[in-house]
Design a binder for these strands. Structure first.
Length: 549
RNA sequence: GACCCCAUCGUCCAGAGGCCUAGGACAUCGGCCUUUCACGCCGGUAACACGGGUUCGAAUCCCGUUGGGGUCGCCA
């Protein structure tokens, strides 16, 4: 992949056996993986799979402070959890320093970049040597600025020409002569000066120059055509920006280390990346990167930018928002497939009404032209709803395994209970769970020896109406104790018989039982609940509820 | 501030000039089911930011305004 330094003209794209798509996810490991970031990985992955291409990972670990081995592990773990395994070995940017240095050296050697001062940073110059018709064009119509009328300082939109001192003195602020074309300046004495002449007189200076001092007369009007940088964004469409608003670019720091832009372009090129798909915050960078690729003498990849993810107030995510890291969702018991699905749908849709989709379906439907342009606010309630749907669809064994994990995390031993009993409990809880993490707290009454009765439930169900609930408990206790093998069926039989004998309604009996036995007003069906709590604990809890009256 | 981008129910998305009396999902409200809580089912409320054009016809195209976001580092 190494290439000798040479002129811009002789360079060409890297040799690739096929034109197959290669995309990459290029995060810098910070110890946390933000969902906006992992969403970028998801969309890249989806695109690669849809196109039958490769999904690569480049760890941008050049920041030694933050990029600890642990931070890298966190990143890899998050990707594994979501099944976003890259198709090739991860590339660690820190190992690529020699290539970056070589690229900088080559640009300097070609005269495209230079160090302004010997111990200063290396700067890529935005000169016409870098302008390629494939991404730099000239505006058709000239811009005309009347300087003489200016009372105070004026600044033409986007043009780095400013008149100061009540219009007396026109100053070019770091004027990039190459950003403008066909520059003509008319002066008070009616003479007209061309940009080329002035440029020569200014000695190609990139420092502020007073036009007046070059002209020897006060400028009256400026006339020029602007140059534009442009490219076709895969999701945003045709984008352009006046060149005069883009300044020379630092590519290597004074200490010689490459800056992000340089390293990014060099690595993407040498990894054979064909499509750079990243967040919206990089669109402005893209214009600069185009020049870096040009300076490298290579064809740039294609670019696509998807919208940013916003917090629930509709504002950009910041560290203060919290709960926006992949690990947080995992800890809350969001299923990986669900988070994947949800995040994929954040800024993209298949074009029809499908929402809960398998990865295969998403891959099949994924195209960049269906990526939305505007920012997407996360709808956490919808995430919970979707997670509930995923839980509902889990195979029983998988559900049980996942719930066992939650139990362990909560400090309980899921292996201490009867597997059949646990399987039954899992199925009873399935429709009642929005997240896996809810399981241990919702089912504590089935695992603990004793239960604490919720005050509100006690008042409403047991103590109301002169203690009618307690009265029911007193009367149902014996028939229950007599229930034979304590199965759901036998409990149903016993309770039904009690209802007939007592003339009570099921509701009058079930709620007091539920509260006494679970401590709360909500649980699975009463027969199922009693079965799960078991004979011994059921009778004991009823007795306790009566005693603490 | 300059430049660039974006703009449909509270939120996410559908809509690529007539199929729109604007559709779906979450949330919300009401009802059904039901021993509770959920699940499930049925129904309701709710949006084309504003103003000009273009057109026989505009949520869809153009211009402006407003609002939001992004970028302006020897951070990534």
């Amino acid at each position: 992949m190494a290439r000798a330094a040479g002129s811009v003209q002789d360079a060409r794209p890297p040799e690739r056996s096929s034109m197959s798509v290669r995309v990459r996810f290029a995060p810098s490991p910070t110890g946390h993986v933000h969902i906006g970031n992992i969403r970028a990985a998801i969309l890249n992955w989806l695109f690669a799979r849809h196109e039958g291409g490769q999904f690569l990972l480049r760890v941008e670990d050049t920041d030694r402070e933050r990029s600890t081995p642990e931070a890298v592990q966190t990143l890899l773990a998050a990707m594994q959890w979501l099944e976003l395994e890259p198709d090739e070995e991860p590339v660690y940017q820190s190992t690529r320093r020699p290539r970056h240095d070589a690229a900088v050296a080559a640009m300097i050697e070609r005269g495209l970049a230079s160090r302004i001062t010997p111990d200063g940073p290396a700067v890529l110059h935005m000169t016409s040597a870098l302008f390629d018709p494939s991404f730099v064009t000239e505006s058709r119509h000239p811009v005309e600025i009347d300087v003489s009328q200016a009372e105070t300082a004026i600044s033409a939109p986007g043009v780095a020409v400013t008149t100061r001192g009540a219009g007396r003195e026109a100053v070019t602020e770091r004027l990039n002569w190459d950003a403008l074309t066909d520059l003509e300046i008319a002066t008070a004495d009616a003479a007209t000066h061309s940009g080329a002449a002035l440029r020569a007189r200014a000695g190609e200076s990139r420092e502020p120059v007073a036009l007046e001092s070059l002209l020897g007369s006060r400028p009256v009007s400026l006339r020029f055509r602007r140059r534009f940088v442009h490219y076709d964004d895969l999701v945003l469409g045709r984008l352009e920006k006046p060149l005069d608003s883009i300044r020379d670019l630092v590519i290597a720091r004074a200490d010689g280390s490459p800056v992000f832009h340089l390293a990014n372009c060099v690595d993407d090129h040498e990894m054979g990346v064909t499509h750079v798909l990243r967040g919206n915050d990089h669109v402005e960078n893209t214009y600069r990167h185009l020049f870096i690729y040009r300076a490298m003498g290579v064809t740039p990849p294609q670019f696509g930018h998807f919208p940013m993810i916003l917090n629930d107030r509709g504002r950009p995510y910041s560290k203060r928002d919290g709960d926006a890291y992949v690990g947080d969702f995992q800890a809350r018991g969001i299923l990986p497939d669900c988070l994947f699905n949800f995040l994929a749908l954040c800024g993209w849709s298949p074009g029809d009404d499908r929402e809960v989709m398998s990865k295969a379906e998403m891959i099949e439907a994924f195209t960049l032209d269906r990526v939305v342009k505007s920012g997407a606010q996360l709808n956490m309630k919808k995430l919970l709803w979707m997670n509930q749907r995923y839980i509902a669809a889990m195979p029983p064994e998988k559900l049980q395994a996942a719930l066992r994990g939650e139990l362990r995390r909560a400090g309980r031993d899921p292996d201490a209970v009867d597997p059949a009993w646990f399987a039954f409990l899992a199925e009873q809880m399935r429709p009642r769970l929005r997240t896996l993490a809810e399981f241990p707290v919702e089912t504590a009454c089935f695992f603990d020896e004793d239960v604490t009765i919720d005050d509100k439930a006690r008042r409403k169900v047991l103590l109301a109406n002169g203690g009618a609930g307690l009265d029911v408990l007193r009367r149902v206790r014996e028939p229950l104790a007599a229930a034979g093998d304590w199965t759901v069926a036998s409990l149903e039989t016993a309770i039904t018989a009690f209802l007939e004998a007592s003339g009570l309604e099921i509701g009058q009996v079930a709620q007091p039982l539920r509260v006494a036995v679970t401590g709360r007003a909500a649980s699975p069906g009463i027969h199922e609940t009693l079965f799960l709590v078991g004979r011994e604990r059921t009778l004991r809890r009823i007795a306790e509820a009566l005693r603490s009256e």
